[in-house]
């Protein structure tokens, strides 16, 4: 994050806001899946959006993957696109947990539901803390066969300049389930975020 000139205090502030938002999202997911979710501190990083395909290429190269993207819009120029990435192998485990058949058409519906729960709960939690409110566009699901996820990511992320990468790893009680969440944001948003963080920091 230092490349974008975030101070240590700004980074700490953003991390804590994200932790609280993650906690809300995990609670919702746990209720939806009727299980307990082991929460880990998500690692965050701000990178150029053009680096996103390369960042995820290795992890998703030899696997079927799916990507769910959803746009968000708020006040004070807060806007962007949230992407959740899944390895289909992981998604199948969740389908089984929820009683779906593997390869069922409704598995895509399930992924859309889970992504919506994750992104909207997470982003609403984030918005509450910075006294903003967000609206969302309808989620879009793109699935990929082995190896072509990076081209999907490239076409999704090329409109944007920056990306806030939030590595989420969910460990369910009896199942391991990992997904990645990426928030794509326009260039001026970084300055907006820093201004908001400074305003929060001033209060303490």
């Amino acid at each position: 994050m230092s490349t974008f000139g975030f101070s240590e205090e700004q980074r700490d502030c953003l991390q804590e806001i994200i932790n609280v938002a993650m906690g809300l999202a995990s609670d919702k997911l746990a209720r939806f899946l009727n299980t307990f979710v082991h929460l880990q501190v998500p690692s965050i990083a701000l990178v150029g959006a053009s680096h996103i395909p390369a960042e995820f290429e290795n992890r998703y190269q030899d696997t079927e993957a799916a990507l769910v993207s959803q746009g968000f819009f708020g006040n004070e120029g807060v806007r962007g696109e949230a992407i959740v990435l899944y390895q289909m192998e992981n998604a199948h485990k969740i389908s089984a947990l929820l009683g779906y058949e593997v390869g069922d058409v409704s598995e895509i519906e399930m992924l859309t539901d889970i992504s919506s729960i994750l992104t909207t709960t997470f982003l609403n939690g984030l918005a509450d803390q910075i006294e903003n409110s967000l609206s969302y566009s309808a989620p879009r699901v793109l699935s990929s066969v082995k190896g072509d996820l990076s081209s999907l990511l490239r076409s999704t992320s090329f409109h944007w300049e920056h990306a806030l990468k939030v590595d989420i790893s969910y460990q369910l009680v009896d199942h391991s389930f990992n997904c990645d969440m990426i928030l794509l944001i326009p260039g001026e948003a970084v300055t907006n975020i820093q201004r908001i963080l400074d305003r929060i920091l001033e209060d303490y």
């Binding site: 906690g23 809300l24 995990s26 609670d27």
Partner: peptide, 8 residues
């Protein structure tokens, strides 16, 4: 806590 699950 940020982890607000009833189980926790």
């Amino acid at each position: 806590s940020a982890d607000i699950q009833p189980e926790m």
